[in-house]
């Protein structure tokens, strides 16, 4: 049985969390992990729309056998603190695909925290995270990649981009790489920006109203996170859910 040590602001993985909101959660909530094991060669897809009216903590632990493939996509759009934590352990030749979007306004913090463990050689992981915020909301991505000593030919990539729609909103990205093998590829990128004013004027000059222009640009921005989601119905469900909350943006 796991002993429950409640997180504190000194824990690296919790540094951007909203501790006031966390007080609304029962202590037991912190020990709950959803454990999923993929057999060698198995492929599994999970597409989630997460976030409600109160604080939420979602913790998923994936263990992938040799050559297995896990695809996880999530739209994180709660009205309150919503944290999605994913821990992945990859055996030889396994692949982890992750696409995540945090989107929303208000005052809430929404975050993805991933820990991808390349335990054996030739495993690959690919993570694309997009954050779109307004009001005084915050979107975070804390991505840790661990490459074990003999996990040669690891290929791990993570890409984060934040889009701030209003002054006052913010995003944080914290990549963390722990690499103990020498023949590995680890790519990570993080960028934060605002809507392209020139593109907005170009659209307006063609008759597209500002709200529609913003929606088209935000759709293009977050679409990156879901391009690898091959199931069209699930793809559209996540994209529309994410764009659905844009309606109340200023």
């Amino acid at each position: 049985m796991e002993t429950l040590a409640l997180p504190t602001v000194r824990d690296e993985d919790w540094r951007y969390a909203d501790f006031a909101a966390l007080e609304g959660l029962a202590p037991e909530a912190f020990g709950v992990w959803q454990d999923i094991t993929l057999a060698p060669g198995e492929t599994r897809l999970k597409a989630l729309v997460l976030g409600g009216a109160g604080p939420e903590l979602h913790r998923i632990r994936l263990t992938l056998g040799e050559g297995a493939r896990a695809e996880l996509f999530a739209a994180n759009l709660g009205d309150d603190y919503t944290r999605v934590e994913v821990e992945v352990r990859l055996a030889q030749g396994a692949h982890f695909e992750f696409g995540g979007v945090t989107i929303g306004g208000g005052v809430a913090t929404r975050e993805f925290v991933t820990r991808v463990i390349h335990a054996e050689p030739e495993a690959t992981s690919h993570q694309v995270i997009r954050a779109v915020h307004w009001g005084t909301a915050t979107g975070n991505f804390l991505g840790r990649i661990e490459v074990a000593r003999d996990a040669q030919k690891t290929d791990a990539a993570q890409d984060f981009k934040g889009l701030i729609l209003e002054r006052g909103a913010s995003t944080n990205a914290k990549p963390e790489l722990e690499i103990f093998a020498d023949d590995v590829k680890c790519a990570h990128g993080a960028a934060i920006g605002q809507l392209d004013e020139t593109a907005r004027f170009y659209m307006a000059a063609r008759g597209i109203p500002p709200e529609t222009a913003r929606k088209l640009l935000v759709r293009a921005f977050i679409a990156d996170a879901f391009v690898a989601l091959g199931d069209k119905a699930e793809h559209d469900r996540l994209l529309e859910a994410a764009l659905g909350v844009l309606g109340d943006a200023a």
């Binding site: 392209d196 020139t198 593109a199 004027f201 170009y202 659209m203 000059a205 063609r206 008759g207 597209i208 109203p209 529609t212 088209l216 640009l217 759709r219 293009a220 921005f221 679409a223 990156d224």
Partner: peptide
Amino acid sequence: FLGFQYPVEIPGVSGMQFLREALNA
């Protein structure tokens, strides 16, 4: 209609989608 000296690139938005939105608006 304003024809731009330097037409603007909009990654992720197709010409079809852009013009259909514009015309219908």
